[in-house]
Design a protein around this nucleic acid. Structure first.
Lengths: 143, 143
DNA sequence: ATAATAAAAGATAAAAACGTCTTTTATTTC
DNA sequence: GAAATAAAAGACGTTTTTATCTTTTATTAT
């Protein structure tokens, strides 16, 4: 569904969002422990998200990652778009380049509906949307 | 969504199904041209599908691939299961190993519905289901 | 200023996915 | 039974993805 990189990106950003909701920055070590993912790998991913303006970072003591108010309204769809591109939202289920309304693959019509549902699921979830449930232990991020 | 191998497997099997509907066997060259996929690669995939009893093959002159009556009722879900396993049908959207009703990830509830829809879409499509539309040019397999 | 901290950047490596080429085996036709 | 055909099997190569390690740069606190 998503690449591993994208899964990590979503988990890490939700983790940062949770901390940012509490007004604190968080370092890579804590993030990687919090979501149980390889430290250097998610460092790379966060560099990327940072460049793309989805998270903020500051170097040095008391540095770390956090979200601006605006970034707290980032949706999971935005993250997927940034990391995996929009193939999940627009691509053919069978990987046909020319698949379209005019030249549909066998799954085209059925898949169109599902694709749309996936998109709206991801678009209706901001990265902060899960803060309460995560803090209360009703939802989890650890792999 | 699916691995490339799985996409090829689905396309190739639907192609064979179409020919088998016309009572003829079909060789790898014709299949690979028909779905515009690398010849040796789909040969491997078909070997695998053959071992798993999803397609039949015979060697030598006038040999090729075809489907038994029973195999014409193979569903796309069967193929996905055989090639990619059932992670698409049962796995967590965010790749969490322990994600479950008891310990759900943030997307668990919403994704459960979508996963189920994907499964039933694939289960309700047999490999022969598209024969008519393919022959009439209303659906396509070429990449 | 200096030392400590933490992210950024770069290099490298391991694993998996994807793809190609060659040889072998089975079958058919002549 | 020899030649031709076509899949099976095996070896090999490339690319992408995933992961790790090291060095550099920016920031803070002393």
């Amino acid at each position: 569904m998503f690449s591993k990189t994208c899964e990590y990106a979503i988990l890490a950003t939700i983790f940062i969002a949770q901390k940012s909701g509490q007004g604190v920055k968080v370092g890579i070590k804590e993030i990687s422990k919090g979501i149980n993912a390889p430290e250097h790998f998610i460092a790379k991913i966060l560099q990327d998200l940072s460049r793309k303006g989805l998270v903020q970072s500051v170097k040095g003591p008391n540095g770390g990652f956090y979200l601006e108010e605006e970034e707290k309204r980032t949706t999971l769809a935005d993250i997927v778009q940034a990391i995996d591109g929009d193939s999940l939202f627009t691509g053919c289920a069978l990987g046909l380049k020319h698949c379209s309304e005019r030249e549909p693959c066998p799954l085209h019509d059925e898949f169109k509906v599902i694709r749309q549902q996936i998109h709206s699921m991801l678009q209706s979830s901001t990265v902060t949307a899960f803060n309460r449930e995560l803090i209360q232990g009703m939802k989890h991020l650890r792999r």
